[in-house]
């Protein structure tokens, strides 16, 4: 299977500080790839490089097997890469439909085409089997944390995106809502999307992911299938960069 998104040998520095060292990262369609690592390991930087917010210093970026240049968030969006940030970036004073189409409204001439947008939003939410919201004309301010996460995710998949990156989607949620969001994450992958899940929670990672990529101090310690590793091994990869045969030897990939 060819990865839909593949990075090879990525380096990234901020001034004198090198944050990413020779990082390779592959994401496959129909799979959930968990991106794990301790604080400061470089997860956010890697995601921002993927999303075009930070330009990469060196290394290559392949999308569907072809080398591409991503210089801005617009380039990433044009390829079909959507990132759902932790703070969600929703407008409380707008309703669900308005938020989902923000900045990309459908218009007929000068006038907003509300009916088409409402239909498309309803269809997308339905395809994600979201049934918890009362009305899609509800203001986002009246939604619970899990529902807001759902809206942010639905907003990301509305655009025929191929890769959806979720930055700690369950960090602020309760038990029931976490289960709901994880279920949604699984469903996205089952529909053929490539999903990247950034998480600190091993239970979440093992519950939904197909692959795990562990970053350690700016290096990719290992990219493994979830079924082939144990909980403890992943924790070791995160905290020390290696675990048995897996991981880095003397700070360099084996």
């Amino acid at each position: 299977m060819t990865p839909v998104l593949e990075l090879r040998g990525i380096d990234k520095s901020f001034g004198p500080v090198q944050v990413l060292h020779d990082v390779s990262f592959s994401v496959y369609p129909g799979e959930v790839t968990a991106l794990v690592g301790d604080n400061g390991a470089g997860k956010s930087t890697l995601v921002k490089c993927v999303g075009g917010i930070h330009p990469i210093d060196s290394g290559s970026y392949f999308f569907e097997g072809k080398p591409v240049q991503v210089h801005s968030p617009r380039d990433a969006a044009a390829l079909g890469i959507e990132i759902v940030y932790q703070d969600l970036a929703l407008c409380d004073n707008l309703d669900i439909v308005q938020n989902m189409f923000l900045g990309r409204e459908h218009k007929r001439g000068l006038v907003l085409d509300e009916d088409t947008m409402e239909e498309m939003a309803a269809k997308t939410l339905q395809s994600l089997s979201v049934k918890t919201v009362k009305s899609i004309r509800q203001h986002v301010s009246s939604l619970s944390g899990g529902q807001r996460q759902t809206v942010a995710i639905a907003k990301a998949v509305l655009w025929n995106s191929k890769v959806v990156i979720l930055d700690e989607p369950t960090a602020a949620l309760g038990v029931a809502q976490t289960a709901q969001v994880l279920e949604l994450v699984r469903r996205l992958a089952d529909q053929g999307l490539a999903v990247v899940l950034i998480s600190h929670n091993m239970n979440d990672v093992f519950a939904v992911s197909d692959r795990i990529a562990a970053l350690y101090l700016g290096r990719m310690a290992a990219q493994v299938k979830t079924s082939e590793v144990t909980h403890a091994q992943v924790v070791e990869l995160i905290t020390s960069g290696r675990s048995g045969d897996l991981g880095l030897t003397n700070g360099v990939p084996a």
């Binding site: 407008c91 923000l102 990309r104």
Partner: peptide, 22 residues
């Protein structure tokens, strides 16, 4: 009814979200 008006509300509600939406 216009995109301009919708964007005004968006900037007033959450300027950062509006900026990220382009």
């Amino acid at each position: 009814r216009t995109g301009f008006g919708r964007h005004l509300y968006a900037v007033g509600g959450n300027a950062e979200a509006a900026r990220r939406a382009g």
